[in-house]
Amino acid sequence: MRLGDRALGVLTLLGALALYFASRQFSPLPGQKYGAETLPMVISGLAAAVGIWLILQGWVSERGKPLAMVTDWASEPAAWGRIAAAILLITGFILAVDWLGFTLSSLVLLTALMLLTGARPLPALALSLVTVLVVQFAFGRLLLVPLPRGEFLSLPW
């Protein structure tokens, strides 16, 4: 899906409005004209200008064209499925990692992603295992990144 200039312009303009109303609750510094609201207000003003610019530009150049174009992949349900699956897998990883631990959750994530991209199950599992162990050693052990240990399986490092 590619938005045309008019549609993107309207979106930008709506964003500018939302930002304007959200920043009205902030107050200037005591005794000053400027403060926490200054930057969001400036951004919202700029966004309004850019939005109008886009709408005008679209008015001139996109006459008679649809507001948005459907890109080639968007008509394939499988593509939508793959991207949704990847996002869900990462979300699952975020939710599970503190409880399941880095080792197990990344093993599941990596194998599942490889199946998603079309790798065969056994090589996918083997490669995932090696990668996870290497990453865990390099980051957790050598570079002291505090990867979550999880509640049950935790490797000796």
Partner: peptide, 29 residues
């Protein structure tokens, strides 16, 4: 098809390493 999942894992760990918490991964996603 094998590299892209591995890159994803590196993205997760890299984002985690900056905030030292899952919050980095949420931002990254």
């Amino acid at each position: 098809k094998l590299l892209m999942p591995i890159i994803t894992l590196f993205c997760l760990v890299g984002a985690f390493a900056i905030t030292n918490s899952v919050f980095g991964i949420i931002l990254m996603l």
